[in-house]
């Protein structure tokens, strides 16, 4: 599903050069649940963004479901994201002025073809059927993350990229979110999870450890 071939990403500032990724080579098979762990600033999020097609590596290749992402135009990469990838972030990134229902439906803006009844099923699945008319500000943090999950699931993605999805949640809500991701994985979806939480990592079948942009051997 995901292939990273000697991927490096270097950020240059006036004073110094930061190697966020340093020759990372990794494979994630379809249907795998993989956690990426490591200390803060080790390049976990950069790796996730590179896999999403939103951070072009300075060198190396990123192949997603057979597509060499950075050989494609930004438009094609966006289309691939819209079709195959769902996102879950630590800070949810919900659109504040849209209701829960509208937030769940927002992937339609990118061309997702989910019907209303499919969207309702997704909302029910994450336990938000009663909260559809509410705005994000009226929800608890756990509920907000479940909205983000429902939004990520709407376009029936092959891959979910999750960046610290339970970083802002209490253990109970954290477990609930991880259960949904596990359920998605059990149905055949691939999950690439960036976390420093043991609870989250415990759901993964395999863990990649990054340190100063380098992948440590298993």
């Amino acid at each position: 599903m995901i292939v990273l071939q000697d991927a490096s990403k270097v950020y240059r500032t006036r004073e110094r050069e930061i190697r966020a990724l340093d020759g990372v080579t990794a494979h994630v098979e379809p249907g795998e649940f993989v956690a990426v762990r490591g200390p803060s600033g080790c390049g976990k999020s950069t790796l996730l963004m590179a896999v999403a097609g939103m951070a072009r590596p300075t060198s190396g290749r990123v192949i997603l479901d057979g597509d060499d992402l950075y050989a494609l135009s930004p438009r094609r990469r966006a289309a691939i994201r819209a079709r195959k990838v769902g996102f879950v972030f630590q800070v949810f990134h919900l659109v504040p002025y849209l209701s829960v229902w509208e937030n769940i439906l927002s992937p339609r803006l990118a061309g997702a073809h989910a019907t209303d009844s499919e969207a309702r099923l997704v909302a029910e699945r994450v336990g938000l059927a009663e909260r559809l008319s509410h705005r994000p500000a009226e929800l608890s943090t756990g509920e907000r993350q479940r909205v983000a999950l429902a939004r990520a699931l709407l376009n029936k993605p092959k891959l979910i990229l999750a960046d610290e999805p339970i970083g802002n949640l209490d253990p109970e809500n954290g477990r609930a979110v991880m259960d949904f991701l596990a359920e998605f994985n059990q149905e055949g979806g691939t999950v690439l999870l960036v976390t420093h939480e043991d609870l989250a990592a415990s759901y993964a079948q395999r863990t990649l450890t990054l340190e100063r942009g380098r992948l440590l051997p298993d």
Partner: peptide, 16 residues
């Protein structure tokens, strides 16, 4: 900016 960021991440085109 966050809203735009998530829309772009979801694959919403720059035209939209």
């Amino acid at each position: 900016r966050h809203e735009i960021g998530i829309l772009r991440a979801m694959g919403v085109s720059s035209v939209k």
